[in-house]
Nucleic acid binder design. Structure first.
Length: 207
DNA sequence: GCATCGATGGTG
DNA sequence: ACCATCGATGCA
């Protein structure tokens, strides 16, 4: 079996059909790539919303100057130190929530930011929303700090494995981290090649 | 198509 | 003061 396949979402679901703890307890880069093409499922006030993830970013630990943990362990970043498969949701610019998936083992503050997705189901009675950006995605899926720290294998918010042919993925620098010195150049943003649902930021990158 | 700017509030 | 954003505005 090829490494590309081992690193993908395929074959990693448990009996529940959801991505399980072992999927998330890997390094942030592996999880960031593997999440492309998976389905994010959000249950909120009796409606199940589904979206197919097309863009992620990896924040690889306290040594990564773009990672919130680089500034130390604080009240805000405490959930980054949970084990892989928990949500790290924070509030920024006075208006937006950002959804991250904590990865790796407990006490190692790595995470994957979910940046963009394609609406799949749940918005009946209206046009499908634009999920092409981390703030827009959280707004449409009703994700706020109330979900900070929740277990991403539970009903409220979880992931289903990718289906169909494996997505072609390219890597670019991360968005909005110009302050992060040499880390701003690292190719830690991952997008599905050709997707029209990725965020407005640059769509070119290396394979 | 692009660059620039303001909203808005938690955080350390 | 800063910020892992977004939508509006101006101009081409």
């Amino acid at each position: 079996m090829q490494k590309e396949t081992e690193n993908s979402a395929y074959g990693t679901a448990g009996a529940s059909g959801r991505l399980g703890r072992e999927f998330f307890e890997r390094d942030a880069v592996t999880v960031a790539r593997a999440l492309i093409g998976t389905t994010l499922v959000r249950q909120f006030r009796g409606t199940e919303y589904r979206a197919r993830i097309v863009e992620t970013e990896a924040y690889v630990g306290a040594h990564d100057l773009a990672c919130h943990a680089a500034k130390g362990r604080t009240a805000r970043t405490e959930t980054l130190y949970l084990s892989g498969g928990h949500a790290y949701v924070y509030f920024i610019y006075g208006m937006y929530s950002m959804l991250n998936v904590v990865t790796g083992v407990a006490e190692d503050p790595q995470a994957v930011l979910i940046r963009a997705a394609e609406p799949v189901a749940g918005w009946n009675g209206g046009p499908p929303p634009d999920l092409s950006g981390p703030g827009k995605l959280c707004r449409a899926l009703h994700i706020t700090r109330a979900q900070n720290g929740i277990d991403l294998t539970d009903d409220a918010l979880h992931f289903l494995p990718a289906t169909g042919p494996p997505p072609r993925i390219i890597a670019t620098p991360r968005i909005g981290v110009d302050y992060a010195k040499e880390w701003k150049h690292e190719l830690l943003r991952f997008l599905e090649l050709g997707s029209s649902a990725v965020s407005k930021a640059p769509r070119k990158g290396s394979a």
